[in-house]
């Protein structure tokens, strides 16, 4: 510590006295080795981090190069054409894009209110000891692989809907002028609505767990002040918690939307794989991911394969934008909570 004490040691080191030269050499070598290891390790981790970036660029580049033949053949018309005919090599993406967006919208319409209400229950109403078990149970829904939702949807949920909800919708809302066309046609069981409902169940845990986290991050001073003014629990959530956590909730919604848009297996089982746009949400349709999953291995010819890869590119671009917005929103709320 004190200079007086350190001085002899430094002198010794500088003059080499008290240290056998061979030992000093070995020590320098060991130090060099450590330094080299340090540099190598650092560069290794850096390379891995850059590798993650390359992964994403690789995905983009390979999708673009794979979809070039189709895009060159069909041009912009690919996006707006409703035709999908492998026999005549004529492809259009509109039915798949339409199906993807409509099923995801149905999913969000159901999952967001339900998820926010569950978060309300978990943060304000639920007794403390029950919060963790219920939270974990809801998150387990997220852990179930999507193929399980698919097989369950095909064999259990779709027949159930065919026998109950769909006839009910056709007989009631189907007769209402204006929106009646949405619920027209026979009850197939499978179709756009069924896929939307399955997607709603699948994204519910994402909405719930992120919303709960942002609700919990609301400073309790704010909530206590509102309670002190005599607000009811619902008024606290409606007027204090929700406005404060708004950005985070939007982030949660966008993140779940990103999931719903790209979800493949569950939808493939219950969508019906029909390349057409029907007014009725009870009719079978298709989504981008379901089309790829169903047809890719059977695609004959370069143009067919390329058209499917173009669909993948469109899906990737849409989800990328949605997820980027989600991340931006969540980053903003994280910064504010700090």
């Amino acid at each position: 510590m004190q200079p007086a004490r350190r001085q002899p040691v430094v002198d010794m080191a500088l003059s080499g006295q008290g240290v056998v030269p061979a030992e000093a050499l070995a020590r320098t070598k060991a130090l060099d080795r450590l330094r080299l290891g340090d540099i190598i390790f650092r560069q290794l981790t850096r390379a891995a981090a850059i590798g993650v970036l390359l992964l994403l660029s690789g995905v983009i580049v390979s999708l673009i190069s794979g979809s070039l033949p189709a895009l060159r053949t069909f041009g912009f018309g690919f996006l707006v054409s409703e035709r999908w005919n492998p026999v005549t090599d004529n492809f259009g993406a509109l039915p798949a894009i339409y199906g993807t967006i409509v099923t995801s919208l149905i999913a969000m319409l159901i999952a967001v209110p339900v998820g926010v209400m569950i978060a309300f229950f978990l943060t304000e109403l639920c007794p403390q000891w029950l919060r963790r078990p219920i939270g974990i149970a809801i998150e387990l829904l997220a852990g179930i692989p999507s193929i399980i939702y698919g097989i369950w949807g095909l064999f259990i949920f779709a027949p159930f809907l065919q026998a109950t909800l769909q006839p009910f919708l056709i007989n009631t809302l189907g007769n209402v002028p204006g929106i009646g066309a949405l619920f027209a046609g026979p009850p197939y069981g499978i179709g756009i609505l069924t896929s939307g409902l399955i997607l709603a169940i699948m994204v519910l845990p994402f909405v719930t767990s992120i919303t709960r986290d942002v609700f919990e991050a609301v400073p309790s001073v704010l909530k206590e002040a509102a309670y002190g003014l005599g607000c009811t629990r619902w008024e606290v959530v409606r007027n204090v918690v929700l406005p404060y956590a708004r950005v985070g909730v939007i982030g949660a919604v966008m993140l779940s939307l990103g999931r719903a848009l790209g979800e493949t297996m569950a939808v493939t089982f219950v969508i019906g794989n029909a390349h057409r746009i029907s007014a009725s949400i009870l009719a079978p349709g298709t989504t981008i991911s379901a089309t790829i999953a169903n047809e890719f291995t059977e695609a004959v010819g370069d143009l067919y394969t390329s058209a499917l890869i173009s669909l993948g590119l469109i899906l990737f671009v849409i989800t990328f934008i949605v997820l980027a917005i989600a991340r931006y929103m969540l980053m903003r709320i994280e910064r504010r909570i700090g």
Binding site: L261, G262, T264, L315, F316, T319, A324
Partner: peptide
Amino acid sequence: ILLSAPSIVVGL
């Protein structure tokens, strides 16, 4: 973004 990217795109 990779964390939530559609897995079918990874397959492609």
